[in-house]
Lab assay of single mutants.
Amino acid sequence: TIEDAIKKLLKLAQKGQPYTFGDFTVTSEEEAKKLAKWLKKQL
């Protein structure tokens, strides 16, 4: 689910690992949080 993807994304971001989700490449926890907010709006 999208919720699971968001959780995984935040965990990876906390470890400092870049994470690619579709067109987004997230390289920081701050970016992960922005992406998570955006994804929730898409639901």
Rank of each mutant, 00 (worst) to 15 (best):
T20P: 14
P18M: 10
K15F: 13
D4N: 09
G16C: 15
E30M: 07
Q17R: 05
L9Q: 01
A5N: 02
E29N: 04
L9D: 00
E30N: 07
Q14L: 13
E30Y: 15
T1C: 15
T25Q: 04
A32I: 10
E3F: 15
T1F: 12
Q14R: 03
K37Q: 13
K34W: 12
E31R: 02
A13W: 14
T27Q: 03
D23Y: 15
A13T: 05
K40L: 14
K34L: 10
K11P: 01
T25I: 14
T20W: 15
A5R: 06
D23K: 05
T20M: 09
K7H: 03
I2D: 01
A13N: 02
K40F: 11
K11G: 10
E29D: 06
V26K: 04
F24Q: 01
L39N: 00
W38C: 11
K40C: 14
K8G: 04
T1H: 04
V26L: 04
D4A: 12
E31M: 08
I6Y: 04
D4V: 04
A5H: 09
I2L: 08
G16D: 13
K40H: 14
E31V: 15
Q42R: 07
V26S: 01
L43I: 10
L39V: 02
L12Q: 05
L39P: 00
G16P: 02
Q14E: 11
T27F: 13
L35C: 10
F24D: 02
E30W: 09
K34M: 07
E29S: 04
Q14N: 10
T20F: 14
A5S: 03
W38K: 03
E30A: 08
L12F: 10
P18W: 15
Y19I: 15
G16N: 06
K33Q: 08
Q17C: 15
S28M: 12
A5K: 08
I6S: 00
D4R: 12
F24M: 02
Y19F: 15
L9K: 00
F24Y: 08
T1W: 14
G22W: 14
F24T: 02
K40N: 07
I6M: 04
L43T: 03
E30V: 09
K37P: 00
A32H: 03
I6D: 00
W38Y: 05
K34I: 08
T20Q: 11
I6F: 08
K34A: 09
L43A: 06
L9H: 01
W38Q: 03
A36R: 07
A13Q: 03
Q17D: 13
Q42G: 05
Q17W: 15
S28T: 12
Y19P: 12
T20C: 15
K11Y: 12
K40A: 14
L12A: 10
A36T: 05
I6A: 01
Q17I: 15
K15R: 09
V26E: 06
T25M: 08
K40D: 10
F24H: 02
K8T: 11
K40R: 09
D23F: 14
T1E: 06
P18H: 11
L35F: 05
K37H: 10
K33W: 10
I6H: 00
L43E: 05
K11F: 09
A36D: 03
S28H: 01
A13E: 01
Q17S: 10
L9I: 06
L43W: 08
S28K: 02
Q14F: 15
K41N: 09
D4K: 10
L43P: 01
L39E: 00
K41L: 06
E30F: 10
F21P: 04
A32W: 14
G22S: 03
S28A: 04
T27G: 04
L35T: 00
T27W: 10
K15W: 14
T20D: 14
D4Q: 09
T25L: 13
S28C: 11
K7R: 09
I2K: 01
L10D: 01
Q14T: 11
P18Q: 09
K7V: 07
T25A: 05
K15L: 13
L12W: 14
E3V: 13
I6W: 07
F24E: 01
K15Q: 11
A32S: 04
E3G: 07
A5E: 08
L10G: 01
S28F: 14
L43G: 02
D4Y: 04
T20K: 04
Q42E: 04
T20H: 08
K15M: 13
K11I: 11
K33I: 14
F21H: 02
K7E: 09
Q14Y: 11
D4S: 08
T1G: 07
D23M: 11
T25N: 06
A32R: 03
F24L: 08
E3I: 14
E29W: 14
K8V: 14
I2A: 03
E30P: 03
K37T: 09
E29V: 14
A13M: 09
F21I: 05
A36Y: 13
E29C: 15
K8L: 13
K41H: 08
K15G: 08
A5Y: 15
I2R: 02
W38M: 04
T1K: 07
L39H: 00
K8W: 13
L12M: 09
A32E: 01
L12R: 08
L35V: 02
L39R: 00
V26T: 03
P18E: 11
E29P: 11
E30G: 05
E3D: 07
T27K: 07
A13R: 03
K15A: 10
K40W: 14
L43S: 03
K34Y: 07
P18V: 11
L35W: 05
T20L: 14
L12K: 04
E29M: 13
L10Q: 02
K41D: 12
E31K: 03
Q17Y: 15
V26Y: 02
L10H: 02
E3H: 09
W38G: 01
T25H: 12
D23R: 02
S28D: 04
S28E: 03
K40P: 02
T20G: 07
D23G: 10
F24V: 04
Y19K: 07
E3Y: 14
A32G: 03
K11E: 14
G22M: 13
V26Q: 01
E29I: 13
D23L: 13
K11N: 10
Q17L: 15
K7F: 05
G16Q: 04
